[in-house]
Design a binder for these strands. Structure first.
Lengths: 346, 346
DNA sequence: CTGTTAGCGCTTTCAG
DNA sequence: CTGAAAGCGCTAACAG
């Protein structure tokens, strides 16, 4: 196995010192254009690529970002085979962004509810020495983790978290999105619009509910709290919520559910009771996971890839010493109109 | 930010030399149990975790495995939002296996069809110095990559590849699986069973076809080559193939498709022509991606997670110096019976 | 603008 | 069985 080419070889080839090569590959100033060109030529000729490990050892950066996901939630998603593509979207956004900066993203699973979160996170940091950490729900709002990271002075980003606190908070405007969905339904002619909430464990559940309330209150028909049914993101809770909404004296003609799974549950529950979609009932869901596609659900698109790209970007720039980066970023949500929505039959 | 705890701190705490600590954490011989215990206690007390970068610099191992996926194919899968969970399954199998050995898996995207594959792969190796590389289709059978890896003497595993060659070949028995599916259909009472092939670019397409032929030939009804329709794994090709099968003078009552997408296409094409499933037509697909679940397709389960776990295991053991590891491993496939299969109506 | 000198935290090699 | 010395490939901190 031919020995790998190192900075030494490049230096020799270009007839300069190691340091000059280092300066060139790091885009540092104080290198004459001529020399710079000579070095770049040597790099290209030898196919030199710096070793991440050596860079981390010598310098202060590791060129590694660590994405922390909840162990149970992630594995459960993978095992279920339901195509929850949270991880894929994160990779697509974060990994590709990292790539364009010479960074790598390493995926780590940590059990949020464990007593050993602290040790687990510390261990991962000790092993990897990442330049930054990306937190996904529910880690994003776990004080045991955010506190640790803050204390360590390690830059971190909280994805899909709107809570106050340290670190870069990157989210979509959940309230705005809910209001948008309500307005879309109002525009189609719906008056009685139900809402199924998400688990109170997530701050965004509250935001989505707020947006719904705001939009309904602003509508000519006003807000009717009896149209708000509790859910917890599970299929079962979606069924229960939908049943309660359909049992109302004056049932809604449209429903906004806080995630795809509950929307799917709502859809099936409605059909089981003989309602046809969208003639008798329109449904809009949140997130737009593959399930929404398959179930032909009109959905608010949660821009996971974009959020994780923004997170990676913030972290990389912070490590590079850039300051005055936005502490909180709002990423625009999307909207996919499919077959689950239409004008009410009346 | 408190300085990280290093091997020095542990050595001081335990009152031994660096070397002894190194021996203990690497499970090397020649350390008295008493001393070993003392070191372990110090490690636990200080929460010491060795730095991957330093290990790689000092020694010959990096504790990193690199999973190489095709760029276009992967990004396309992510963008489509169709829930192709290949990446997730790979992560689940490979990452968790790595974790249990103190390894990490790094995901890399490389364009298989590019002229720069060689440079791209070399670059990734130079940056990461992985102890092993996991190749997924179509990389698994790309000589530009396998040849490079062989030349470098870097251990690698080819997932879902049954072709001969260097590296660990890890696959399911595609022919056996196809035969199994055919037998299942025969058992339900089907006599005319169609087959939709996959893209010839993949060796496993041939294997699946072989299994089908073998099982049909062994059946009392014999093999009828007119029941074999060409596909290339795309939805459109599935539609075309199904249309040709349904146009046959004596149409099949069951169809085995080489992947979920084509099976889905077959299903919809049949329904569009007024056939009901499974009464008029039974369908079995390969792979069992989330689509199979959503479309209620009976499917052969491609054990991606298991294959990637086996790959990781082989690579890690090879790096640890273990020899006589199986050059090729066959991982058992699974079978998920759903609503797309039943007895023929006659 | 460029080169030299120290390490970074480990493992390898070689002495005891 | 244990320790000391050398060095991996790079960057930071100085000298020129």
């Amino acid at each position: 196995m031919r020995r790998a080419v190192t900075i030494k070889h490049v230096a020799a080839e270009a007839g300069v010192s190691l340091q000059t090569v280092s300066r060139v590959i790091n885009n540092e100033p104080n290198v004459r254009p001529v020399v710079q060109e000579r070095v770049r030529a040597a790099v290209a000729k030898l196919g030199y690529v710096p070793s991440l490990a050596a860079r981390r050892m010598g310098g202060s950066r590791s060129y590694l970002l660590m994405a922390l996901n909840d162990r149970d939630r992630t594995i459960e998603g993978w095992k279920s085979g339901e195509g929850t593509d949270w991880v894929d979207q994160m990779l697509m956004g974060g990994m590709l962004k990292c790539e364009s900066h010479g960074y790598r993203m390493i995926f780590e699973l940590v059990d949020t509810h464990s007593d050993h979160v602290d040790a687990a996170v510390r261990g991962a940091i000790a092993a990897l020495h990442p330049d930054g950490v990306i937190l996904t729900p529910p880690h994003s709002e776990n004080p045991a983790i955010t506190g640790l990271l803050s204390g360590l002075g390690l830059p971190f980003a909280r994805i899909a978290s709107i809570a106050e606190g340290d670190g870069f908070a990157i989210a979509m405007d959940d309230a705005e999105a809910a209001a948008f969905a309500v307005d879309h339904l109002l525009g189609l002619g719906h008056r009685r619009i139900g809402f199924i909430t998400g688990s109170a464990e997530y701050a965004l559940s509250g935001a989505r509910l707020d947006g719904y309330r705001r939009a309904m209150a602003a509508s000519p028909h006003g807000l009717d709290e009896s149209l708000v049914a509790r859910g917890d993101f599970s299929y079962e809770s979606g069924v229960a919520a939908m049943e309660s909404l359909l049992a109302l004296p004056e049932r809604p003609t449209a429903v906004l559910a806080s995630n795809d799974r509950m929307a799917h549950a709502a859809l099936r529950t409605a059909k089981r009771q003989g309602l046809s979609v969208p003639a008798d009932l329109s449904v809009i869901s949140f997130d737009n996971t593959p399930l929404a596609r398959f179930a032909d659900l009109t959905a608010i698109i949660q821009p996971i890839a974009e959020m994780s790209a923004v997170a990676a970007e913030c972290l990389i720039r912070a490590t590079a010493g850039e300051t005055d980066l936005p502490q909180r970023s709002l990423v625009p949500f999307g909207f996919a109109e499919r077959g689950s929505t239409g004008a009410p039959k009346i």
